[in-house]
Design a protein around this nucleic acid. Structure first.
Lengths: 176, 176
DNA sequence: TATTGTTATACTCTATAACTATA
DNA sequence: TATAGTTATAGAGTATAACAATA
């Protein structure tokens, strides 16, 4: 059971690390800004899903998500197939073109990171990645978006093509 | 030496964790938004410093820093004393009022974090904090802002009053 | 009546550029 | 001439609210 003092230090580091995140983002080309890469990444890792679920993974409002997705759709990086179970929503899925763009973005980000992490071992990096993922999970498993978390989970079941070391699969929900 | 594949995963997690950071930020009161807390935190931990150094720690442009600092100054949370060595700059320092505000903000952030980290041990939290700090250092020690890194370091030497588990002391510099 | 997603609008945060004062 | 900091302006990113279509 983590005490508040230790959490305070983590909170500080959390804010600092957002600076690192921004810095990595600055290295991305203008046509794939950080927000776009975030969408690509979630769709690449967790596969086909609807808008609302994507918004939860990204931890941003669905209205914002909608615009990011529109951007990807305009470029032809995703396909939107009608959801047979609910005509109000469409299922979003990375197409081959989108997967290429994701791979390139991911590569660029990894490059920037690797350039600075020359004195890190792969084990160190994995340890940090794992802890960060655990942190995400700890923030995700509570506050389940109010409505029924029914069988829709089936859609996000397969880890998708561009998937990485893939770990857990629960999106976070944010304040309304 | 970390390989690109492992760094790619870290890059993903880095982006995700920014969502956690945003979520913590949402819990802060309107008069101390995340950007303000960031300034308070740096001044609280590293003590008196000039604008340019603060900007480096925050990893944001000095123009942005200037406005954040102006905000703190308006509320009377910091003191700005003239720098005897260079009349162009002033030394920024948290005053007692500012330290109280920082303590409250830090507390609030820690609360939010602790609420979600019930199944984390203090050791886990410390491990993550430590790795994040190391990450910051790895990004900070290169690219030294072009100009001479002369004896100005003396100013940031003392760990300051509100300091936490304080570790290293090198700010990051960002792309121009 | 409630929910999914879209659009319009406003707010926060950051970057770029022009400027002042000092080095 | 170069640097520290300020201010003005613009551009990402996000949130809130009003809306249309469907459940």
């Amino acid at each position: 059971m983590a005490t508040k003092e230790h959490c305070a230090e983590l909170a500080r580091q959390l804010r600092v690390v957002m600076g690192v995140g921004r810095e990595v983002g600055r290295a991305l080309p203008p046509e794939t800004p950080p927000s776009t890469v975030a969408v690509l990444t979630v769709l690449g890792r967790y596969g086909e899903m609807r808008m609302s679920r994507l918004a939860e993974y990204l931890d941003i409002d669905i209205s914002v998500t909608s615009r990011h997705v529109a951007y990807l759709a305009e470029r032809g990086w995703i396909d939107r197939t009608p959801d047979a179970l609910d005509k109000r929503s469409r299922l979003l899925r990375l197409n081959p073109h989108g997967e290429k763009v994701l791979a390139a973005s991911s590569d660029r980000a990894a490059e920037v990171l690797a350039a600075h992490l020359s004195d890190w071992s792969d084990d160190d990096v994995d340890l940090l990645s794992g802890l960060l993922d655990r942190l995400r999970l700890s923030f995700g498993d509570c506050r389940p978006k109010a409505h029924a978390p029914h069988a829709r989970t089936a859609h996000a079941a397969h880890p998708a093509t561009t998937a990485g070391t893939g770990t857990a699969h629960t999106p976070r929900t944010h304040a309304n």
